[in-house]
Structures are given as structure tokens and as C-alpha cells.
Design a protein around this nucleic acid. Structure first.
Lengths: 214, 214, 214, 214
DNA sequence: GATGAATGAGCTTTCATTCAT
DNA sequence: AATGAATGAAAGCTCATTCAT
């Protein structure tokens, strides 16, 4: 940890600068300045600027999957577990200021695989996709299980429901990010986000005996 | 129309290149090449590269508000009108291939206002924000009306519901965009998107006398 | 004159724009705009932008030599004629506002001959040098005659005296040019310039009987 | 000195290229090539191309004022001190080849202050004007003192005499500059220049009890 | 490990010039 | 004669990356 402290300073600075300026407009000079290290050091710890971005993103997906692994063991019903996934997502992003920037960074499109020459970066990209797919599969599987058990509306295609929930979750979190800045006061807080996501998932479930329209 | 054909070629090319590469990686050279014009012509019709981006975005919001103005007169109930807003959104984006790119371009973060020096671009930014606000206000107002009339769940804050619907809509449309490319087959089509949005909105309404779970 | 009116408008505009911005920063767009004609018309009347500059300069030297031809016939003594040359110079430059700009344009260095490819421009350059040489020769000859007649200090090399008189004349005129602009009020006027040049020349002459140190 | 060697190489190269081509035709590529460095390095040491020009000019005026400060303590009479100012000027310019280029660079018109956006360049311009004013004031003051003591012709306005002397000095030096190039052999040398300036100043003085022609 | 001077490919932008109308 | 849309060479400048210290 002492050993890697500079590397972490760079990653921390990179998340913020990339979130604020976007990947291309985030310059190595500014990242280094924000991290309090010399410009050259970035290329000591990372292959190149893209490597920094990929490292930031991979770290996020690894953390989210790792957090999910722990949390999902606590629930058994598909609906509770589905809610838990999004709670994990929100918790990770709302943990601290730095994490909130992550939500913005993830919006940065990943570069086309074929445009990456370096082998090690190719592998890092594959790792990111694998982690990403892991979460996607988790969600889709939970939805399907819920539909088979008759507690989730079977009329909705799993991937469509995933996109609805993911889109809503992302948008609400993005709202939290904007709230960091004075201009963008949005009128709701982290608790509202959590409740709203739970409520949204409930719209697609019939966990209790029966209940209205689903 | 003949007069502005080259200008439109540039805008069309810009939408695609920006959607594929992102604004920052979209070079003027490539936009010009794709439009089949000399690169100098871009700066004849536009102040600079940013002006091209802003022009594309402004055009979109103007078209969407204009389409809404027409469509909303056809409905009276807040719920129907709310659905109509998102139908307009989907229709505009699914109209043709070019439009689909728009959804991607809109994800490009707008530059910080204070970083724009030029007066005319400042004005263009203001115009975009105005059009954007117009849509936002329309949606929020419809939700509030629905809540006052008791047909939309009053427990959800209007701006939260707007973000949920907007996020879902955007994510589903983005899925359609990915479908353009061989790799990303997503397993649902434009009709699915429309139905899903209607269904999602219905989750928050009690159009029928039945109150159900809302 | 009606025939060439547009050509003259362009030359007039060019003098001012070049004086204000310098030759390179004087754009054809601005020259055309100031002249009230279309940009393309410049290339109808002139081979290229350099041709405009050379035409402006050639015109000046032709006018000055032509004015000298007339004026010099009115005087016989070398000293009077020498003074007359500089009076012509001042008069031409102080004739009107446009002329004053000339003084500034003349400061623009002439391009290296070998960098001019076009034959016709090569010829125009030669013509300018010829006109320039004509004036130089006139001055040097007058000084030599004065020295031979014992009325001009023979200790000064003719070309040195020419440079002294030319430098002083140019500097004083340049002061008048600066006076056009609010900031540069210089505290002397056209009459002061004329008197000063006469006085300066007198310093090097013994026109009267004898008189002190010369 | 080792530290700044590249920066000085750039300044040296810039002086020459600007003198030969004029500021506007002096390209950063050529300055870099002549200095033997990469073109990017220019923008490492200087804000932009204009900054290079301003730095060159400021350096000159600082050197001239500094040299004057030392030299002027050696003389007491206004006339001797006035001559000394121009000797300093000549000496600085004739010190080595590089210095001679300075005379040409100084002829480049300074850009209009209001066209400079950058704060630091605004300050550099102010510094140049201050140094310039310092020399101007020195000369004008010496002339006035001489006039009050009755040794300099009181009929000439100080600023007019300054322009006469300055113009002559500049023109003679410019002649020396042309002598660098094969084509322009001018027939006088550095000693001629110095003597001529002394002689010119003497024309306006009555150092000896004799009043002579003044 | 850490620094920052130095590099140069690649970008946006300018603008003289052309040419169809 | 006159226009101005269109061209493209060439410029200034940025910034990821390298490397001697």
C-alpha cells in the first residue's frame, strides 16, 4: 500500500479529471498535477494514457462484482437479489466523492477493440468485458429465475428490463453527480435514489400474494 | 435546400463520425472526407469544430420540441400526453439511420459554458439549454398534472420519475443504436422499445378506475 | 477612370489595410470588404496578393519621381533642390489620409527577388527598384554637386548624408502617421516637419556667405 | 547558463529568422530548425510565437537601458551624454552579428495592445513600453537640459530632435545590416556611423564658446 | 523511483486562390 | 465584370510519450 501509493494517487486523480473533462481532454499534465506527481511517473506505472482509463474502469467492475458476490449470498429470492444488485451499484457510487465520479467515467465510450495494438491492453479490455458480462449475466439470470418462479412479470424480455433498470439507475446516479456542482441542484438525495429503484423493481414484481396490476 | 446541401452533408457526416468516435476523436478531416467536401468548407459554414457539435445538438432539440408541439395537441389526458412525448422521442430517433446516431451524440457531454469564449457559441449553448429545458418542463408539468388528477402516483417526485423514464428510454434507444453494428445484436426491436416505454409508464398510473397497487 | 474605379478602390483599401495590419496580416477578405467589392475581384485585377502590394509601392515611387521632375525645374542651386526633394516627399505623404498610410506601407520589407516566381512580378519589382534608384541617384547627385560647389559639407559621404536626411524624414513622417490615432499624440505638426527638415539640411550647408563651423 | 541554453538558442534563431523574413513570415518550424531543436520546444519556453518576438524585443531594450545606466555616469555635460546614448546604441548593435539583426527586428511594428488576449503577454508589452519610454525620456531630458544650459539649439522641439537623431541612427545602422549581405555593399563602416552621429549632434550644439551657426 | 526537458505526430484553423455561375 | 462557394497547402499549437539525469 505504501509501495503503490503514488499509483493510487494517479488513479484517483485520473478518475476526477476524466470525469470532469472527458478522456481526451483529460491531459496527463493535469492528472499528474492533481495527483501531485511528475508527468513522467504516469508512464512508469501505466503503459499509456489509455491504460490509465482502462485501469480505472476495470477497477470499478471488479469492485462491483466483488461486492455483489458478498451481498448476494445474503438473499435467496430473485427479487430481493435483483434489488440487492442495484443497491450495491448505488452504494459503490455514493460511497464517497471519488466514487461518484466513476459514474461519469463509465459513460466514456470504450475504444474499439481493434484500434488497440498493444497485447496487454487487449487483455485488459477483455477483462473489462468479462467483468461487465458477469454483471449483465447476473442480472439477466435473476430476472429469468424470477419469471420462472412467477414473481417477475414474464411479459418483459429480461434484457429489456435490465436496460430499463440500468438506465433509470444510471440516470438517477448521474443526477447525484451533477449535484456535486452548485449549479445543478436536483432536489433529491441518495435515499430517494435507493427508494426509487426499489419501487421501480416492485412495479415489475408480485412478491406479495397478489397486488394490483402485475 | 440546394443552397445548403453541402452544409447539410457536413452536419450529416458530423453526426455519424461524432457518434462513432466521440466528439473529441472526431477530426475535421474525417468529417470532411465523409461528407465528400474539402476540410476548409467546414470552417466556411461553421465557426469551429465545436460549432458543428452544437449545431447538431440544437437541431435535434428543435426537431423534438417541434414534433412534440404537433403531437401533443392530439391528446388530452396527462398520461396519454406523457406517453406521446416518449413516442416522439423514439420515432425521431428511429426515423432513419442518421437519426439513430443522434442518440449517441446527445450522450456527449456539453462543454462547460465558461470555457466557450465566442459570443455566438455562447448564444448557441443558451439556445440548446432553452430547448432542453422546454422538454424537461413539458414532462415535469405533465407528471404534476397527472398527480393532481390522481392518475399518476403522487409519491414519486416528478423529476425522479422523469429521470427514470428518460434513463430507460435512452438506454433502450442506445440498445437500438448498438444493433446497427454486427457485434451487438440485442434481441429486441423498435416495437419492443415502444411497448416497453408504454408499459413502464403504465406502472406509474391508474388510468382505469381500479386503483390497484399505486 | 470609370473603367478602373473598382481597381482603384481595391488599391486604396489595400494601402490602409496593409498599413494597419502589415502585409501578411492584411487579408484579401478585409481588403475586399473595405473596398466594397467581392473577394474574387482582387484576382481579376491583380495576379495575386503580392501584386497588390507591389502595385501600391510602385505607384508611390512613380508619383514621387513624377512630382520631383516637375518641382526640381523650379530651382537651380543644389541645396534648394535638395530641400525640394524632401518637401515633395512630405507633401505627397501629407496630402491626405490615404497618403499618410503609404509611409507605413513602404516600411514593409520588399520580398526577396528570388522568391518571386512570376515573370510579370519580377518585372514589377525591377520597376520599383528602378524608381527607387532614380530618387536615390537624384539625392546623391545633388549632394555631390553641392559639395563640388562648396556649399555642402564635403566631409560627409553623400550616401551617409542621404541616410541621415532620409531617416530623419521618415521618422518625422511616421510620427505624423501615429498622430492619426488617438493614443499617439506627438506634439508637432506637418509645418514643424517641413521646417525641421529644412533646418536639418541647412546644418550641412553654407549657402550664405560663410557662417560658423561648416 | 547551461540550463537555459536551449531557450537562448531559440531566441538567437528567432532574431535571425525574424530579421530575415519578418515576424509574420518567420515560421516556428524554421526558427526551431535554425535553433536545432524540436518545434514543440518553442512552446515549452514561450507562450506562443508572439511571446518569442516580445521576448526578443524586451531583451534588447533592457540591455540598452542597462548599458546606458553604466555609460552615462561617465559624462556630465548633456551633449556628451546625448552622444553617449547613441554610441551605446551603435555599440550594442555592432557588437556581433546577432546584434545587428536586432536593428531589423525592432522595425517590426508592435502589435496593437488590445489584440493581445493573454495577461502575461499584456504585461510583457507593458514592460517593453516602459523600457522604451525610459530611453525616450532619457533623450528628451538630456536635450532639455542642454537647451536650458544654452548648449543645444532651443528652437528645436526635443521630441523633434529626438526623432531626427533616432531616424538617422536607425537608418545608418540599417545600412550596416544590409552590408551583411553580398548585394547591398554600402560604402561606409561602423566608424563612419559613429562619427556621423557625433557630427550630426554637433550640428545642434554650441559646445564651444563660439555660437556659430546655431 | 522520480523528474521534467525534449520530441514530433497530429490536430484545428486560416486564407490566398480558383472557378462555375 | 463580378460573385462567393469551394479548395487545400501551410501555419501555429497541443500533448502523449521518451529518456537522460
Amino acid at each position: 500500500m505504501k509501495k503503490d501509493s503514488k499509483r493510487e494517487l494517479i488513479l484517483d486523480a485520473a478518475i476526477k479529471v476524466i470525469a470532469e473533462k472527458g478522456f481526451q481532454y483529460a491531459t496527463t499534465v493535469e492528472i499528474a498535477k492533481r495527483a501531485g506527481v511528475a508527468k513522467g511517473l504516469i508512464h512508469f506505472y501505466f503503459e499509456n494514457k489509455l491504460d490509465v482509463l482502462l485501469s480505472v474502469i476495470l477497477l470499478f467492475w471488479q469492485e462491483i462484482n466483488s461486492a455483489n458476490r458478498k451481498r448476494l449470498t445474503q438473499y435467496t429470492s430473485p427479487v430481493d437479489r435483483l434489488k440487492a444488485v442495484f443497491v450495491t451499484f448505488q452504494e459503490l457510487l455514493l460511497r464517497d466523492e471519488r466514487s461518484l465520479y466513476w459514474g461519469k467515467v463509465l459513460n466514456e465510450g470504450l475504444p474499439q477493440l481493434h484500434s488497440i495494438k498493444s497485447d496487454s491492453l487487449q487483455k485488459k479490455m477483455q477483462a473489462i468485458k468479462r467483468e461487465n458480462k458477469k454483471l449483465t449475466n447476473t442480472i439477466d439470470t435473476l430476472i429469468k429465475e424470477g419469471q420462472e418462479q412467477g414473481v417477475i412479470n414474464a411479459a418483459v424480455k429480461p434484457q429489456v428490463l435490465r436496460l430499463i433498470l440500468g438506465g433509470a439507475s444510471q440516470m438517477l446516479t448521474y443526477g447525484m453527480y451533477l449535484d456535486l456542482f452548485p449549479k445543478g441542484k436536483i432536489g433529491f438525495n441518495a435515499d430517494d435514489v435507493r427508494e426509487s429503484m426499489d419501487m421501480l423493481i416492485d412495479k415489475f414484481t408480485t412478491t406479495l400474494s397478489v397486488k394490483g396490476e402485475i
